[in-house]
Design a protein around this nucleic acid. Structure first.
Lengths: 195, 195
DNA sequence: GAACCCATGTAAGTTGTTACATGATTGA
DNA sequence: TCAATCATGTAACAACTTACATGGGTTC
């Protein structure tokens, strides 16, 4: 259900083609909501049939026509409604933790591998998030710049602040995972080699 | 794909009925991997047809027959194989963050509501996790007791330790989310009421 | 006798993944 | 010319949700 609204949200900044949406959902917004192009294209057509977006062919650079989608009034209204609604948190499904729970028959080496991979994974994410945060703050984040451009200066603090907050949330999460993995590795060492 | 292995993992502790598995996947294991009974029953039959588990009717208390599933050798082998494999981390899909990103047109009150709900949600989770952790450490966690019973005493430290680690991971995550939500609320206040 | 827990299921629908397809343009 | 990127799609499948069904037993 959320892809629909993630798309509407994205289009509330500026009209965008399916292709560019797909790119962003694999990159910047992908850090909050990933979706593949095979899911995005049909969803956009569905949104159009619902009257929440309209589309038009743009043929700026000739030979490469794009279908660009823009939010309608009804689309904007439905987005606002969704935003006001409280989130319903999805159930937890964490394969990493499940493995850890049952890894007690495996060699300690395997457990260590898992935990290092976990740390590495979140270190990589953290690096990206930190870069994005710097770009947000320096005002060189393209989507944010576009969003600010259509809004009064008095709101800029809030608009930027919310994006910064969202990113900081991801950063806090990544750091928690890294710290946990490090503690876990240290514990494993002490367990393996007692005194 | 992971439900299959979560079930095998669970059955590696002791034979269990579909009903009890469904209960646990909504409760204790549910804190790592949730699944509904409508997903579990068919999956168990599929596992049986693959020869990874076998089942038998147990009719201890008469009038209430249960089908109990037990792991086969092949099931145990496939579980071990899966456990050795590195996790592939699923893409991020975080409706809460998406909302926050686009809430910059909503009244500040709505944003505050979202953040408090977020904090409350993770406070509730944290309370449960902390209780489970105490039970794990006190040795009154039923599944853990059963698992320890079939294993040599020399391994008990590792077996318990891994469950404790997994729980501590959830605890760290919940705490990170709570701290973040509190920072966010404080920032919102300062933004709303400058100086 | 009503309401609830036990125990297991079906069926329809939604969401997301994977594999494949196509044709055009750009750069090395 | 070969590979990569642009731009859009279809089709089959896997995972998960929601709603409904059923029949026994227990408790108030």
């Amino acid at each position: 259900m959320s892809l629909k609204y993630a798309l509407l949200g994205f289009l509330s900044t500026e009209p965008t083609s399916g292709y560019d949406l797909a790119r962003e959902f694999g990159e910047s917004l992908g850090w909050f909501w990933y979706a593949s192009h095979t899911q995005i294209y049909p969803e956009l057509r569905r949104l159009e049939s619902e009257g929440l977006v309209t589309s038009s062919m743009t043929d700026d650079n000739p030979g490469k026509p794009k279908r660009t989608y823009q939010l309608t009034e009804r689309g904007a209204a439905e987005l606002r409604e969704w935003l006001a609604q409280p989130v319903d948190y999805p159930p937890v499904r964490d394969a990493e933790r499940v493995k850890l729970m049952f890894l007690d028959t495996a060699p300690v080496e395997v457990i260590r591998e898992h935990l290092s991979t976990h740390r590495r994974h979140h270190e990589d994410l953290l690096a990206v998030y930190l870069r994005q945060l710097r770009e947000l703050r320096r005002g060189v984040f393209p989507r944010l710049v576009k969003r600010l451009a259509r809004r009064p200066r008095s709101e800029h603090g809030l608009i930027t602040g919310l994006k910064v907050l969202a990113m900081q949330g991801n950063i806090a999460r990544a750091r928690a995972e890294i710290a946990w993995a490090e503690d876990a590795l240290a514990w494993l060492e002490s367990e393996e080699d007692p005194r």
